[in-house]
Amino acid sequence: MIEWDLIWAHVEPYLTGAAILSGVFYWIKLLVAEIVKLKYSIKLEEYKYEVEKRKKAEMVAKLLAHWLSFPEQQEELNRLTFECFLWLPDDIAQDLSSLLAHKEENKVCVRSVLNKIRKHLNSESPSTSFNRLENDQIIVFSQETKKKYAERVTNSLK
């Protein structure tokens, strides 16, 4: 007759060990899956932040380019200005306001405002290369702007 108790006594430790190992492997698998999920969610958030940063930079560029063109219709100019004032920090918003209102023209210019916004948008970047650009290194094409401004002044005098 087969001694099942004797066989079970020899097999049970192996089955218990196998069950424990199976549980450990399952736990490790879950842990690795969560780590990968966390890494991808962090990368996704970083990507979303970069996209948002680019949208803000685009908004400022659009505003300044539109403002420099002396538009007849000011609705778009107002919309862009309001959007920028909603997220810019106070000091940069004040400089932008001075620029758009032609106040403190010797102190505030398109280049200085652009450079401040550029540094603000990239303040969390590990790269220090965003602090090296000087205001006079930013190119602003203003020939047409000056021409339109002169035309307006001339037309207003007539």
Rank of each mutant, 00 (worst) to 15 (best):
G17A: 11
L99D: 02
P89R: 12
E45A: 13
N106Q: 14
L88G: 04
K43E: 12
L6C: 05
N106A: 14
T81C: 08
V108K: 00
I92F: 02
L15A: 06
E105K: 07
P71S: 02
A57I: 03
L80T: 05
D5H: 06
L44D: 10
P71L: 01
Q74I: 05
K43F: 11
P89E: 14
E104Y: 07
I35E: 00
D91Q: 13
V60D: 03
K103G: 08
S41E: 09
S41T: 04
N106M: 12
E72R: 07
V108M: 03
L15H: 05
A18Y: 15
V108P: 00
C109Q: 13
S98W: 10
V110P: 02
R79P: 02
P71W: 01
T16D: 15
T81P: 03
L68G: 05
V51D: 10
Y40W: 11
R79D: 11
L63K: 02
G17Y: 11
E50F: 10
S112H: 07
T81I: 05
A19E: 13
D90W: 06
E45D: 12
D5L: 05
H10N: 14
E76V: 06
R54L: 06
A57S: 10
L86P: 01
L21W: 15
V60A: 06
E72D: 13
L64Q: 02
K107Q: 15
L114S: 10
R111P: 06
P13E: 08
L96F: 04
D90I: 10
M59R: 13
I42K: 13
I28G: 01
N115F: 02
E104I: 03
K53Q: 11
L88F: 06
S41H: 03
H10I: 08
V24W: 05
Y40V: 03
V32H: 05
K29H: 02
T16L: 13
I35W: 00
K53L: 06
V113Q: 06
L44S: 11
V51I: 04
V110W: 08
H66D: 15
V113T: 04
C84K: 05
S69A: 13
A19T: 08
L63Y: 01
A101N: 14
P71K: 04
D95T: 01
Q94F: 11
Q94G: 07
S69Y: 09
H102C: 08
E45R: 15
C109K: 11
E72W: 05
V36K: 15
F70Q: 03
E58G: 06
Q73T: 04
E58R: 09
Y40R: 15
R111Q: 14
W8A: 09
H10Q: 15
R111V: 02
I28K: 00
V36E: 14
L68Q: 05
A101C: 09
V11P: 05
W4C: 04
F85D: 12
E105Y: 01
A18C: 11
A57E: 12
A33I: 03
E46W: 13
I7E: 14
A9Q: 15
E12L: 08
K116Q: 06
